[in-house]
């Protein structure tokens, strides 16, 4: 699984996507931390001692600021996938297809040892698609219930209780899914340990691309070949002139 230094690499994440991701994970991290501070047991909270009140105040401020940041980045992302060329190609490749189900079953049988090879997968694997759309589902719930609780004076108390229950449930689910799903796949996965650097430099190595996104690799190769051919053709044309 060696990825040579001089190996060819391809663009996995563009600058805009990387910036969106940084805003998303920094604010989500803060939201999880400051949110679950409300669920702490008494003996944990007592450890803050006399600084507790101050900490509680800043907890609230940070949670709100991070909440606004995450909402804005989500709204930006919606605009991005509908209005920008780059975003449209992203969402086009991200949409679930029948082939994803085939890939899932083939990959699971491979992992369990019933198949000789991994299936060749697209630009986004079925797992990545699940993770991506889970964020839509989760964000919708936490943003709506978060706004409800921020504007509590206009809502019946029972609705707020419901919002609270959804906010907590969704946050717990998201925190666990991020830790067990995402962190494991991009950090503790032996293929990429200690981390998949794509979120920093946006690059994927050729060997990794071949291994994990075989169909995308082939598609890209065809495109490059076609481009080269076109360039050669137009270049030839110029020479002739």
């Amino acid at each position: 699984m060696s990825h040579g230094k001089n190996e060819r690499s391809f663009v996995r994440l563009t600058k805009s996507q990387r910036i969106q991701h940084v805003i998303l994970f920094v604010s989500t991290g803060l939201l999880i931390l400051t949110g679950f501070m409300l669920m702490g047991e008494r003996w944990v909270i007592d450890m803050f001692g006399s600084a507790g009140n101050e900490i509680f105040y800043w907890r609230g401020i940070i949670h709100r600021v991070a909440g606004v940041a995450v909402t804005l980045v989500c709204l930006y992302h919606l605009g991005y996938v509908f209005l920008q060329e780059e975003g449209r190609s992203w969402i086009k490749d991200m949409l679930p297809r029948m082939s994803d189900a085939t890939h899932a079953s083939q990959n699971v049988s491979y992992m369990l040892g019933f198949r000789e090879t991994r299936p060749k997968m697209e630009r986004f694997t079925y797992m990545e698609k699940i993770e991506y759309f889970s964020v839509y589902f989760g964000m919708f719930i936490v943003i709506v219930t978060g706004i409800m609780m921020w504007t509590e004076q206009y809502w019946p108390k029972f609705w707020l209780d419901i919002a609270d229950a959804f906010h907590l449930g969704e946050a717990t689910l998201a925190a666990l899914a991020i830790i067990i799903g995402h962190i494991f796949s991009v950090h503790y996965n032996p293929h990429v340990y200690p981390m998949n650097k794509a979120f920093i430099d946006g690059k994927i190595s050729e060997s990794m691309m071949k291994e994990e996104h075989g169909l995308w690799y082939e598609r890209e190769m065809e495109r490059l070949a076609a481009e080269e051919a076109a360039a050669a053709a137009s270049g030839g044309g110029r020479n002739n002139a």
């Binding site: 699971v108 992992m111 449930g169 689910l173 666990l176």
Partner: peptide, 25 residues
């Protein structure tokens, strides 16, 4: 609502955990 999320968490976390373990295998 609490029950819904408990089930969802067991399913999602269980599924993810299974997938990761299978991948390690």
């Amino acid at each position: 609502i609490e029950l819904f999320y408990k089930i969802l968490i067991v399913v999602v976390v269980g599924g993810l955990g299974f997938h990761r373990l299978a991948d390690l295998y």
